[in-house]
Amino acid sequence: MSLISFKNVGKSYGEFKALKDINLDINQGQIVSIIGPSGSGKSTLLRTMNGLEEINEGQLIVDDHDLSNPKVDINKLRKDVGMVFQHFNLYANKTILENITLAPRIVLKENTKQAEQNAMKLLEMVGLKDQANKYPSQLSGGQQQRIAIARSLAMKPKAILFDEPTSALDPEMIGDVLNVMKEVAGQDMTMVVVTHEMGFAREVGDRIIFMDSGQILEDSNDPKAFFKKPKEPRAQQFLSKVIGH
């Protein structure tokens, strides 16, 4: 059954069409990588999935919530769909532990003890248990991003959206973040990942979406075959540039 379903979705900023006629169904448990050149609409597409961007045309249903309906209760949906950002966006005024426990306490009404126990388990999973009482600014980018993933997981979501999660990191830090993402992928989580990490897309992903100029040009359920030889000429050209150097 599809968890996320786009039907003829369009999105424009004034004259500029950021998304054109998007049709896409993402099933529960799928690991979907969205790739493509800058400005192709990858991040915009991802951000429509939890309502950070509104759509102008078509129908978008995420976890039975109709995002094309202006009256939809977006907060209900966001409980179940986490998001990890390029620039981490950890709460600067909260400690690491508070970053993870805030939403479970306020939104899910967990008691503090329960939320903290759960947070410590997640911190252990991402290998940062000893950082619990620090503030985000005291951590490296890679550590902050692992915390951001833990923060999303603390809500026990059905899906997590990743918006270029490794693009702002030093090369040395990328591996640690990808390892955490692989571990999350192993837990049967639905993941939609906008990425330039072709290795991750090929090895961990179940599916590749290639976008250009606001359109989905290729949608492949066989990442290995896609990376060997994409069908679309534009995708071939893109891959030869990305992988060729």
Binding site: N50, L52, R78, M83, L102, A103, I106, R151, S152
Partner: peptide, 10 residues
């Protein structure tokens, strides 16, 4: 910060 909090369900 706002986007993260809203995405977190607040």
């Amino acid at each position: 910060q706002t986007e993260a909090a809203r995405s977190n369900g607040l």
